[in-house]
Amino acid sequence: MNISPADSRVGPSEDPAGAIDGRAARWQTHREERRRDLIKAARKAVHALGSDASMEDIAGAAGTSKSVFYRYFGDKAGLQQAMGEVVLGQMQRRMKEAAQSAQTPREGLFAMVSAYLQMAESSPNVYAFITRLTPGEASAQDAIAASGALGNFFEQVTEMIATPMRQYLGEDKEALIEYWPTAAIGLVRNAGEMWLGSPASDTKPNQATMAANITDWLCLGIAPMLATT
């Protein structure tokens, strides 16, 4: 019996390579979904247990074993990195949205500082978990700060600050624009983390007041206060 070329072709459903690719794609999708679920569960666990929670504590709260977390994230630093990508990505989007309606660079700074403090205050434990590592993990901390989620976050925020500055100050102030946003981020982060970690008291400013204070320090420094003393 003669078989025509059309009859001899193998359909897509009968292609072994296609079947393997399909299974691989489904498995990859499953792994990505499982990874997202683990990050979400870990975030809830850290929020409840604290930033010093161990992998075993986190896994127990998530209803699984720590070996599962090690399989997906490698180690605790890997989990911090993965959670940081999610949380800092959300923080970056919130800051960008807040700044878009600003009419001046100063209004934009206030909006971004407010959004940053609001999200950090919503879960200090999660914020600490993704921005600091436990003692003895300095090398992993360096990697995260330099090229991971935290480093990317600071790069993006630096550009968010620099862009309106270029529009208002002009290109002849590029030397200022190159350094000032980085210095500003250092002030915001250090002052914000000190505020976040300080206990409640009558003298501790609320979030809105702290955001206004930081914005004033960025734009005016303390010169106005020195002039009145």
Rank of each mutant, 00 (worst) to 15 (best):
T29I: 05
D37M: 09
A41R: 10
R31A: 10
E33Q: 11
V46I: 12
R26A: 15
H30T: 12
A53Q: 06
R43C: 11
L38T: 04
A42Q: 04
A25C: 04
T29N: 12
T29H: 09
K44H: 09
A41I: 04
I39V: 14
A53M: 08
L49P: 01
A42P: 02
Q28Y: 08
K44G: 10
A41N: 08
R43N: 08
R31P: 00
E33W: 08
W27T: 13
S51F: 00
A42H: 05
K40F: 05
R43A: 11
A25Y: 06
R36C: 09
R31H: 06
R31Y: 01
A48L: 10
S54E: 03
E33R: 13
M55N: 10
K40C: 05
T29M: 12
A24T: 07
I39R: 10
L38P: 02
G50Y: 03
S54I: 06
K40D: 15
A25E: 15
Q28A: 14
R34I: 02
R26K: 13
A48D: 15
W27I: 13
R43F: 00
R35T: 14
W27P: 00
K40T: 14
D37S: 11
D52S: 09
A41G: 05
A41Q: 05
Q28V: 09
V46T: 04
A48S: 12
V46S: 05
R34L: 09
D52W: 00
R36N: 13
R36K: 15
H30W: 14
Q28D: 15
R26E: 15
G50P: 01
V46K: 05
D37V: 03
S54N: 04
T29W: 07
Q28P: 00
G50K: 00
R43W: 03
L49H: 04
E32L: 15
A42S: 08
L49T: 01
Q28S: 13
A45C: 03
L38R: 04
Q28H: 10
A53I: 09
A25K: 13
S54H: 03
A42N: 04
W27A: 12
E32Q: 15
D37W: 04
A48R: 14
A42V: 04
E32Y: 06
T29Q: 15
A25Q: 14
L38I: 02
R43L: 07
I39C: 12
H47V: 05
A25F: 11
K44S: 13
M55I: 13
D52V: 00
A53F: 10
S51M: 00
D37Y: 00
R35W: 02
R43Q: 13
S54W: 06
D37T: 09
D37C: 01
A25H: 10
H47F: 01
R36V: 09
A25I: 11
L49D: 02
G50Q: 01
S51Q: 01
R35N: 01
H30I: 08
T29V: 07
D37F: 03
S51K: 01
L49M: 06
R35L: 09
L49E: 05
I39K: 07
D52E: 11
K40P: 00
S51C: 00
A41W: 01
A41H: 05
R31E: 08
Q28T: 13
E32M: 13
A41K: 11
R31K: 11
H47S: 10
R35S: 12
H47T: 11
A41V: 03
E32D: 14
R34M: 09
R31T: 09
K40Y: 02
A48I: 08
L49R: 07
